[in-house]
Computed example of a mutant assay.
Amino acid sequence: MKLRQPNRQTDIAAAQIISMSKTHVVVKTEQGRILRLSLSPKHQRDQVFRAALKDIWHNKIWIPVNTKLRHLFRYDWLTEPVMIDD
């Protein structure tokens, strides 16, 4: 799967998780670039989030990452955030 289009610069890349620790996730982009992404303190304590990342890692699923800010996205690239009206 190629995310980037020719002649188009973007900070979003598809990546696979290659390792995890309590505070960081290490990913490898389609271009072979290795990035170390920091997890927020909230995500470090969230056992469900960490379990989901482990499942993504072991199943080698491609995820979107911001290569400039070195962060995971809250939403994937196929869905838009949904606002819930109370």
Rank of each mutant, 00 (worst) to 15 (best):
M1P: 04
M1C: 05
M1G: 10
K2H: 07
L3C: 01
R4M: 03
Q5K: 13
R8D: 07
Q9D: 15
Q9T: 14
Q9N: 13
Q9P: 04
Q9E: 14
D11W: 01
I12T: 12
A14G: 06
Q16C: 10
S19I: 02
M20G: 01
S21L: 04
S21K: 12
K22Q: 14
H24N: 11
H24Q: 08
V25Q: 12
V25Y: 12
V25E: 13
V25G: 05
V26G: 02
K28Q: 15
K28P: 06
T29P: 09
E30F: 01
E30R: 02
E30S: 07
E30C: 03
Q31A: 11
G32S: 14
R33L: 14
R33V: 13
R33C: 10
I34M: 11
I34F: 12
L35Q: 12
L37M: 01
L39V: 07
L39M: 11
K42I: 11
K42E: 13
H43G: 01
H43Y: 06
H43M: 08
H43W: 03
Q44T: 08
R45Y: 00
R45H: 08
D46W: 01
D46E: 05
Q47G: 02
Q47L: 07
R50E: 11
A51I: 00
A51H: 05
A52P: 00
A52L: 03
L53H: 09
K54V: 01
D55C: 02
D55G: 03
I56F: 04
I56T: 09
I56Q: 08
W57D: 02
H58K: 15
K60H: 15
K60E: 15
W62T: 05
I63T: 09
P64I: 01
P64G: 07
P64S: 10
V65L: 04
N66S: 11
N66W: 00
K68W: 06
K68F: 09
L69T: 11
R70Y: 00
R70L: 02
H71Y: 11
L72M: 10
L72P: 05
F73P: 00
R74A: 12
D76I: 01
L78N: 07
P81H: 08
V82S: 10
V82K: 15
M83K: 06
M83N: 10
M83V: 08
D85L: 13
D85V: 13
D86T: 09
